[in-house]
Design a protein around this nucleic acid. Structure first.
Lengths: 239, 239
DNA sequence: ATTGCGAATATGTCTATACATAAGCGCAAA
DNA sequence: TTTGCGCTTATGTATAGACATATTCGCAAT
């Protein structure tokens, strides 16, 4: 006569340990039972216990050291995971019309400040684009983008007729590393006019740089009017 | 006479597959060799291959389905992982003095707007704190915090003499879920005075709410002067 | 007290095997 | 053409055992 809850053993052990950590019963620094103890407690092989603990360690919930044993990890540096919105997707979901407009487009050697930020040598040829994202005739964001033509030569020929540069790139060039910076800035005259907001309005500026295996791909600076946009994210330490 | 690179097989298989995905050689949707094929290729047991692929699947790099096989995952919704700065830590690292000052403190029933945001019933008793974070006598951030006394009753007695509320909570109450919102706001008169900035200056406002096993713990709204602060994060799809 | 060394031990990696299970595929019946 | 059923197959979970390796601990020599 077995019980109703017939989850897999792996999941049951994992849930038990997570529950004890999350509830605070096992505080950071607390020693977790040895593998052979858990093995006896759950009546399973060491491999099963080991796989559970390895997974938890990979997720940063526990810390393992040979011979020393396993302890509950100290709470990690706090971090926020934020979704970066895709206008076309959100517009479709909300049932409103989305358009984008390439305002400027040129191929130029990289300027000194950008060379500094990206680590590229001075004089590298970049495709420079500025784009306005519009939903229902209301400007939602202004995007300034640099694309490294050495890494993405085909961008030089692209007209970006169907997809905005960000979407186009995401579909074409895989990336291995990204850096994000979020700032708050007051809109200057030019920006205010483009976004149809008052000069001085606080705006969110998201700066995103991506690399592919060490080679710089692109830098985007996207500015959102602060009174209409926010970055949102949910996060749970347990995957 | 074995070769120099004697990493573990697990890591070698993983590196190989990751490299092929990251380079674009295996595009999203591409079918990955079956476990028994990789097993033959690397001359190892299926368990070893299985553990590698399970790990990659847990990291979201590949998608596995019984019978159908394993394919490279579609690029996920873009997200930015941003570090939330710990003033005490950063101050210590930079060798400057850090202080915080509790400006107001009261215990009140939750107001309607906050009840809406947190999902708590109207009238729930909350500890309301506002705190100023100061480094080298320059205000760096203004924090407004609500703490749910039903979940953290001991906060009612706490004086927050040694640690600011955020640090105190983090050490005492484990959390299982968090929600973050980042906004850009123009400083109003009161805030400008507290942060010693000009009225209207763009500020970053980080709103963070946490829960522990479904029970609301705390809400913090931290406002940083936009001319001095930014949120930064690095992210790589491979853990 | 200090240092050095060997034994003990907890975790790390890997194998060979077994059975479970979801899902695709083809064939046969309607 | 469509529906339903069973076979096949790829992954999911688990075991018992083996050897590797990083540390810690205690003991002995200095």
């Amino acid at each position: 006569m077995t019980e109703g809850g017939m989850k897999h053993l792996h999941q049951r052990i994992r849930d038990d340990i997570e529950a004890r950590i999350m509830s605070g019963e096992w505080a950071p620094g607390h020693r977790i039972p040895f593998e052979h103890e858990l093995m006896a407690e759950y009546g399973c092989s060491r491999m099963t216990v080991n796989k559970v603990l390895s997974t938890l360690a990979a997720n940063g919930l526990i810390t393992r050291r040979r011979r020393a044993g396993t302890v509950v990890a100290e709470p990690s540096n706090q971090q926020a995971v934020l979704q970066i919105q895709d206008f076309a997707l959100e517009a479709a979901r909300a049932g409103v019309e989305y358009r984008f407009k390439i305002l400027t487009r040129s191929i130029e050697p990289i300027d000194a400040a950008a060379a500094q930020r990206t680590g590229l040598p001075a004089g590298t040829k970049m495709l420079c684009l500025s784009t306005l994202h519009v939903m229902d005739d209301v400007p939602q964001a202004f995007e300034q983008r640099l694309i490294n033509l050495a890494t993405v030569p085909e961008a030089g020929e692209e007209t970006f007729k169907d997809d905005p540069p960000g979407t186009w790139l995401l579909r074409r060039v895989p990336w291995t590393d990204a850096e994000h910076i979020v700032r708050a800035v007051n809109a200057n005259g030019t920006l205010a006019k483009r976004l149809q907001i008052q000069t001085g309005t606080a705006c969110l500026m998201l700066e995103r740089r991506t690399w592919q295996a060490g080679a710089f791909v692109t830098e985007a600076r996207i500015t959102y009017p602060g009174d209409r946009h926010q970055l949102v994210g949910r996060f749970s330490p347990v995957a």
